[in-house]
Design a protein around this nucleic acid. Structure first.
Lengths: 203, 203
DNA sequence: TGGCGCAACTTGACACTGTCAACTTGACGC
DNA sequence: GCGTCAAGTTGACAGTGTCAAGTTGCGCCA
């Protein structure tokens, strides 16, 4: 009759994932400043110093949360890619719209993902598998790569444009009002630049 | 013979500016996480609770520092605008290069400026005068605004592109190595998109 | 001139945070 | 049975923001 928990190796069993899950909940509820090791520990039902055995301090926990949040972000992107239509143009635009929508709906997660400094050795590496948001964006950019140019260039152009727009927009830097929806900002107008993506000479 | 200090109304005289200056020093030395009210107070030579009388908590101090950092940023942009050449294209590109260079040289200041949430009522407002970075960017974009389109659109396109590129680049999200100079990344290739700025139809 | 008022700070306390050393617990191999 | 070791606990410490209460010194008005 020991089938109460599916796996219980030592004490908690899966504390690491429990802490990450608790951290995401805290982030969604209270924003990036609300996250702390002790609150994660309390929510996971363990002592305040337990997280130190799984992560290297708060930066380590943030890195692990960023990896998980990035997976959520990637799934969101995948759905967004199909939401706008089937053409390459529609697919790319859907991804960009999904980027902004994710930023509005999960600001703290976006802050966590892109607040990561890649030079911080205490972070957990964010994995770039084939279903990652990076790969989804790269695939969506592929039809727009002119012959003879590096595919990364188009990807970086699009990524810079939508990332900058999202960051400025969700923090209210682009307009007078604080946005609650993509339609509150000049999304369509700015994304018109997507039609001119690529590095081929002007005319 | 009371001309030792230009103005000394009560005790310190100019504590508010002294705290902002101390905060910028701390930011430049230790990054955004190093900033605290108590360290600013200590560096300014006042008691730990003194900042509360000039700013509404840490967000308030960060807002005030952001305003000052934005002025520094604006001066940097003004110089950068003239560094690349006299043509409108060169001017705009110089601004963008200056954006990235400022981000590399003063990361914590950029984090402070653009970490501000405009919905946070505790912040100090960032002033938009005629010499602000926003206005400099707007002026540089003016030659590229097609007839019959709103000037803000081009500005937002350029701003989104360079802001996103800078944020991703300085945190090392765009490449394997951690950048120390603009030439460490695909700046030229991404900025090729600037030649296609504007909202007129494709051909 | 004298005292009143108030802004500009100080002082002390509190709860919360990350971090560390020392300790306990329980699973596993032999 | 016993040692070993990972996993987690406990208690302490310095640093943090914030609040209430006290102090100080300048300006103003009678």
């Amino acid at each position: 009759m020991t089938l109460k928990t599916p796996k219980k190796s030592h004490h908690h069993g899966d504390l690491r994932n429990a802490l990450i899950k608790a951290g995401i909940e805290i982030l969604e509820e209270g924003g990036i400043d609300a996250l702390s090791l002790r609150k994660c520990a309390a929510r996971a039902g363990v002592s305040h110093a337990a997280p130190a055995h799984h992560f290297d301090g708060l930066p380590g926990l943030k890195g692990a949360i960023a990896s998980e949040a990035f997976a959520v972000f990637s799934r969101h992107m995948l759905e967004a890619a199909q939401s706008e239509g089937d053409s390459p143009q529609a697919r790319l635009k859907g991804i960009c719209r999904g980027y902004v929508q994710f930023g509005l709906a999960h600001r703290a997660l976006l802050d966590t993902i892109f607040g990561i400094d890649m030079s911080d050795l205490r972070r957990e590496p964010i994995e770039h598998d084939d279903s990652s948001a990076y790969q989804i964006l790269r695939d969506a950019c592929a039809p727009f790569v002119p012959d003879g140019t590096q595919p990364e260039v188009v990807e970086f152009q699009v990524w810079s444009l939508i990332h900058g727009y999202t960051m400025l927009f969700v923090r209210g830097h682009l307009g007078e009002i604080m946005p609650t929806d993509v339609t509150d900002g000049p999304f369509e107008e700015v994304m018109a630049l997507l039609d001119r993506v690529g590095t081929a000479p002007k005319s």
